[in-house]
Deep mutational scan, measured.
Amino acid sequence: HNGKLCKLKGIAPLQLGKCNITGWLLGNPECDSLLPARSWSYIVETPNSENGACYPGDLIDYEELREQLSSVSSLERFEIFPKESSWPNHTFNGVTVSCSHRGKSSFYRNLLWLTKKGDSYPKLTNSYVNNKGKEVLVLWGVHHPSSSDEQQSLYSNGNAYVSVASSNYNRRFTPEIAARPKVRDQHGRMNYYWTLLEPGDTIIFEATGNLIAPWYAFALSRGFESGIITSNASMHECNTKCQTPQGAINSNLPFQNIHPVTIGECPKYVRSTKLRMVTGLRNIPSIQYRGLFGAIAGFIEGGWTGMIDGWYGYHHQNEQGSGYAADQKSTQNAINGITNKVNSVIEKMNTQFTAVGKEFNNLEKRMENLNKKVDDGFLDIWTYNAELLVLLENERTLDFHDLNVKNLYEKVKSQLKNNAKEIGNGCFEFYHKCDNECMESVRNGTYDYPKYSEESKLNREKIDGVKLESMGVYQILAIYSTVASSLVLLVSLGAISFWMCSNGSLQCRICI
């Protein structure tokens, strides 16, 4: 991952900044910058967002509201009850120091605090018919004063009620008058409520006091790749198909172990950190130390980045220098085999997901714990399936590479015959000098055995068991695999060879 928040398929997220979902939807004055928000790819909250409900109280069923919003990608904020005409018999300019803005008392931008007009609070009834052709999110509140005197001074009615009804919602609220500790300079409380109004449905408000009335509502448009994440990451000019709280993932790998919460087309989250597919040879310690064997393909974004291909070729060293050249036929066979294998694994496992966190309130801790156990169970199954699949494929890959290298080895052996000696570690020792032209003939299969047989015969008789390297004779190393990324691999195959001279070296080696 890149540690950044990015656009998702070209669409920017909605960053709530210092506000949370509650503050944004109710219209906390400190969240005025969010009022123009219309569309987004996903919503970003920060872990310690401080601006929620400015007048103390709870947004009821907040967790369910977050779940609903996680599939919303755009909205239209509109005046559901026009301020100047909807409440002619009531005062609608209630403000509070708890919702101060720029040093002055204020109130929510989407709600109206209705109080008595003169000395009376006549029963009010108002309704709205949803003609938007889509779901409408309606929010309101109920004020709970701290004393009967406060109730009387604001609403005149000691036994007030609030009723809200639609086809799918029907509740009646009565204020709970009680002494409470002071929070944000208030002994009173406000509880906030919401409902989704279906197209064509009607919502009716009736009250004799204590109503925090809707002013603006939201017509919602769903987008199934949307979601809500909690993150401290910063926004950058970048684009992605998959976003996590820790950063964007741009990967076609089937798995990731970065974060379980994802938005967009994302690899499946697994616990494993070692889900690797081999593309090189079986481990040979001396070669492995030099980083030549054991190439791997990573299938977990965050564990290993991208696929690494092994390729086969020849390396030689003689009086004229040293050089490398790919054996294109065996390399292409290996590439085709690995590509098919990788595609097979991805096809089997690479279903892209959006995974969002589930919200539970403080009273639902047991449910949250149960949900976590269920999620953990599914996660263990996914991890096991992934590891088992790759384990089985790896064994076949190792066998496949062994065969490829063996074929190259036999190709060289059949040409050199007794003009060189096998020394048991995949290397041959020449009994004759071999210049670049000679080396090329070994690589392309045109090695002239009779041409060098007499010199080889004489050297075999002279050496008589002495280690060949100390006599200045020449080696050919018969097994060799270097490691390159897919891009470098293609470039390498396009070149005939490249040279690395070893000044004054008397050794001649050709490596497979």
Rank of each mutant, 00 (worst) to 15 (best):
M349V: 14
K417P: 03
N503Q: 07
Y289L: 12
G377L: 10
V483M: 08
C238L: 05
R282V: 03
A478P: 05
S234W: 01
K406E: 12
N418S: 13
S486D: 03
I258C: 13
P267A: 15
Y384V: 09
L487P: 05
I296F: 01
V442I: 13
F255Q: 07
N239C: 07
E440G: 15
C238M: 02
A355I: 10
G377I: 11
S453H: 15
E469F: 07
L363R: 15
V356Q: 15
F360I: 05
A326T: 02
R290I: 02
N369Y: 07
K413I: 03
Q332W: 06
K467C: 03
S486R: 00
I463H: 04
N232Y: 10
E461F: 10
F353D: 11
K411C: 04
K433W: 00
S481M: 10
Q256V: 01
E437R: 09
M349P: 01
N425A: 07
K457N: 13
M235L: 15
Y269A: 06
V412N: 08
I296Y: 02
S330M: 02
A355D: 00
S251C: 04
I346D: 02
G313C: 04
E455T: 07
S481Q: 14
G465A: 12
I423L: 14
G313P: 05
G472C: 11
D399P: 06
S505G: 01
N232L: 09
K268G: 05
L281M: 12
F430M: 09
L477Y: 10
I423Q: 12
T262C: 12
V488I: 15
Q475V: 13
M349C: 03
G302S: 06
E440T: 08
W304H: 01
Q256G: 02
F430Q: 14
S481A: 08
N436W: 07
R271A: 11
P285W: 02
F430N: 06
P260M: 00
P450N: 01
S286F: 01
S456P: 00
Y324I: 06
T482M: 10
Y480W: 10
L477T: 13
S272H: 01
H315P: 00
L506T: 10
F428C: 06
I479H: 14
L379G: 06
T279G: 01
V473K: 03
L388P: 05
T240L: 01
K451T: 11
V405I: 15
G264S: 02
S485H: 01
E359G: 04
T383V: 03
A295Y: 02
F299V: 10
F353L: 11
M367K: 09
